[in-house]
C-alpha cells in the first residue's frame, strides 16, 4: 500500500510517498526557517501563507521524484492536528482534494502519533513488533510529553508540559541571549564548551504535589519551562554584559542543561514506574547531542535499548505521516470529506 502523506501543522511544508509504512519512495520538506528567523519564532500567518504557495508544487515535485504514477497511490494521509489551525487547514484542503481527485481514501493522522512513528522511518531493520511496550519522550518546538506505547495504536500519555514546550523554551532562551533562531541549534552551538554548572537555573515541577493543571496526570512526570525562561530573563537583566561576554557560552550551557535535566529527570522517573522493553526519543529537540548523550547514559544504566528517530525524521516531515497511515496493523480509518482541523487534538 502506497500512501502519499502531507504535513503542514507548523512551519514545515512536507510531502512523502511511503509504501507499507516503511519504504520511502520520496520525501520532501520545505522549511520556512529563514522567513521566521527575523521574528525569533514561528509566526502563524507567515507559516500559513507559505504553505499555500509551496504545497501544491511540492506535491507535484515529490510525486515526480518518486517515479511513481499518480494511479499507484492507494491513499492520501494528512495531519489534521494538533498544530496551528491556519496551517493545518492548507494541508487538510490539499489532502481532501487529492483524495477526491484520485478517488482514494483520505486518512486523518494525529501529528503526535506520527512523531512517535518517526522512530521507524529510515529504519527498515527495526520492526514495530520488536519494541513494545515502549517509553517515549516526545520533545519538539510545539510539544513536550512522555508517552507509554503498548502497540502501534495503544498510546498512553504519562506527562506533558503545563506551559511551554522544551523547544519553545530553547527558542525563547536563544532570543533573550541574542543567539538567533531556531534556538535549539543556536544554544547548542553557543554552549559547546561552556560550563553547565555556571548558573543553577530552575528545573520546575520537581515535586509530586497535586496540581489542577496536571489534571489526571502525575505532576512529577509533567514539565514546566515558563519559570526557567523568566529566570534567564532576570539573570540577563542583572548581568547585562553576559550576552556579549565570554560567559555567554557558560550561561547558554547552563540554560540548555536546565532544559535537558528536566526532560531526563521525568523520563528516569517514568522508567522507575513502568516496565518497558525500550526507551525512545522523537521530535526536533531529539537532535540535540547533549540530550542524546544523557539519554544514552540513562538507557545503559537501565540496560534498555535507546531508540532515537534518525535526525532527518526528528523535525516535522511527511514520511512519518504516510508511514503511520500505511503501517501494517495500524487501524487507519478513512476520513470523510467533512474532516476539519483539530488544533488542540490530544494524543
Amino acid at each position: 500500500m502506497i500512501v502519499l502523506g502531507i504535513e503542514t501543522s507548523c512551519d514545515e511544508t512536507a510531502v512523502a510517498l511511503v509504501e507499507n509504512g516503511l519504504k520511502i519512495h520520496a520525501h520532501s520538506v520545505y522549511t520556512q526557517i529563514a522567513a521566521h528567523r527575523p521574528y525569533g519564532g514561528v509566526v502563524p500567518e507567515i507559516a500559513c501563507r507559505s504553505h499555500v504557495e509551496i504545497l501544491p508544487g511540492l506535491i507535484r515535485d515529490t510525486v515526480a521524484d518518486s517515479g511513481l504514477a499518480w494511479d499507484r497511490i492507494d491513499a492520501v494521509a494528512v495531519t489534521y492536528g494538533p498544530g496551528l489551525a491556519s496551517s493545518l487547514l492548507v494541508g487538510v484542503a490539499a489532502g481532501k482534494a487529492l483524495a477526491l481527485r484520485l478517488e482514494k481514501p483520505l486518512i486523518a493522522v494525529n501529528h503526535l502519533r506520527a512523531h512517535i512513528y518517526s522512530l521507524f522511518m529510515g529504519r527498515e531493520d527495526l520492526s514495530p513488533k520488536q519494541v513494545y511496550p515502549l517509553l517515549i519522550l516526545l520533545v519538539s518546538g510545539g510539544h513536550t510529553c512522555l508517552v507509554r506505547a503498548d502497540s502501534l495504536n495503544e498510546c498512553h500519555l504519562l506527562g506533558q508540559t503545563l506551559d511551554d514546550a522544551a523547544g519553545e523554551a530553547l527558542d525563547k532562551g536563544a532570543s533573550v541571549l541574542g543567539l538567533g533562531y531556531p534556538g535549539g541549534p543556536a544554544i547548542e552551538k553557543a554552549a559547546w564548551d561552556g560550563d553547565p554548572g555556571f548558573v543553577r537555573f530552575p528545573r520546575g515541577l520537581r515535586h509530586g504535589a497535586q496540581s489542577s493543571l496536571a489534571g489526571s496526570l502525575e505532576r512529577d512526570l509533567c514539565f514546566s519551562f515558563s519559570g526557567l525562561k523568566t529566570s534567564l530573563r532576570y539573570y540577563v537583566h542583572d548581568h547585562p554584559d553576559v550576552v556579549a561576554g565570554e560567559n555567554l557560552k557558560n550561561v547558554a550551557a547552563s540554560y540548555q542543561a536546565a532544559v535537558i535535566d528536566a526532560l531526563v529527570e521525568r523520563l528516569e522517573r517514568a522508567l522507575a514506574r513502568h516496565d518497558v522493553k525500550a526507551v525512545a526519543c522523537v521530535g526536533g529537540v531529539a537532535r540535540n547531542q547533549v540530550l542524546r548523550d544523557k539519554l544514552t547514559e540513562l538507557a545503559e544504566a537501565r540496560k534498555l535499548p535507546l531508540l532515537a528517530a534518525m535526525p532527518e525524521f526528528c523535525t516535522d516531515n511527511a514520511a512519518m505521516v504516510a508511514g503511520l497511515a500505511g503501517a501494517p496493523g495500524y487501524p487507519a480509518a478513512a476520513a470523510g470529506m467533512d474532516l476539519d482541523v483539530e488544533p488542540n487534538l490530544a494524543l
Binding site: C48, V52, L55, P56, I59, R60, V63, W70, S86, L89, V90, A93, A94, K96, A97, L98, L100, R101, L102
Partner: peptide, 19 residues
Amino acid sequence: IYSGLRTALTCAQTLALPG
C-alpha cells in the same frame, strides 16, 4: 475571508495536479 481563499486556491491547484 482568508481561510476560504486558502481552501479554494489549494483545492483548485491540487485537483489539477494529476493529469
